[in-house]
Amino acid sequence: MQTNTATTPPAHTSLVAVGDSFTEGMSDLLPDGSYRGWADLLAMRMAARTPGFRYANLAVRGKLISQIVEEQVGVAAGMDADVITLVGGLNDALRPKCDMGRVRGLLTEAVERLAPSCGQLVLMRSPGRQGPVLERFRPRMEELFACVEQLAAKHGALVVDLYGAPSLADPRLWDVDRLHLTTEGHRRVAEAVWQTLGYEPEDTGWHVPPPATKPPGWTARRVADVRFTQQHLLPWIGRRLTGRSSGDGRLPKRPELLPYEGPA
């Protein structure tokens, strides 16, 4: 993880978040049924130290890298923000059929358009939950992350290494859908980005897993497997078979770069 070691706190006045469900904030659920997530938490902390701080979150669940480039990148580039975060391509990599060459090309296009348009572009090596899904798709993920590193070096972007953080591989920090982080997981991501941007750490152990707990028994694991299959896996397969996405028809929760005044 690249870290700004300057002792003077950054003077960021605006943040734009670009991406998919990870950046939208699933599954950091608020009481009103909306999602918060690491980007909102980061904006809240940045706003607390900068009067008039502005924030936009263009991320929408289910978006592929082609959709992110088509629907979000141009809008973000036109906002003239101090900081832009870009996380995308993992939805593509997790699909049974994926042209990784095309994914790399689209990610390159996104970075080439965003990097000159902001004060600081932030990229990420996304976290992966321990388990068979991670092991199956690990080669694709690492190919994607190698591209992220290369683009960051070429265009002066920062990289937040969430993939290499033991805490974010811990299944206890993932929701029952096994695809999205819990509230605690999002808090740790926000801390990681906060530190990478050069702010004073508030949690130096964000990358350390929670204290060990007794693992669930056989029965509890089977009940969890059945619940996961019925509530999340089968609907996901159904969307793939019919060409639908969980983000179809959904608008960004913060489409304009406006002063941050709390959860949307």
Rank of each mutant, 00 (worst) to 15 (best):
D177I: 00
E135H: 14
L162E: 00
V133F: 12
P171A: 14
K214R: 15
R222W: 10
G37A: 08
H207P: 07
S126T: 05
P235R: 04
A110R: 02
L181Q: 00
A152L: 09
D20V: 05
P116D: 05
D248M: 10
A77I: 04
W206K: 09
E184S: 13
Q120R: 14
Q67G: 13
Q2Y: 07
P51C: 06
Q130K: 15
V193E: 02
S66K: 15
R178H: 15
W38A: 03
V208I: 14
P10V: 06
A146L: 11
V87A: 11
G156A: 13
S126L: 06
R138E: 09
E191C: 10
G25R: 06
S34V: 02
Y55P: 00
A220S: 14
D28L: 08
A43G: 13
G249P: 08
D28M: 07
A115R: 00
L121H: 01
P51K: 07
L197S: 01
G156H: 05
E71Y: 13
P96A: 11
L162Q: 05
R102L: 14
L251E: 11
R240T: 11
Y35N: 07
A56Q: 00
G185L: 03
P139M: 09
D80L: 15
G131N: 04
L151A: 04
Q230H: 13
P31G: 15
E135F: 13
I68Y: 04
V159G: 10
L121I: 04
W236E: 04
E24Q: 15
L258Q: 13
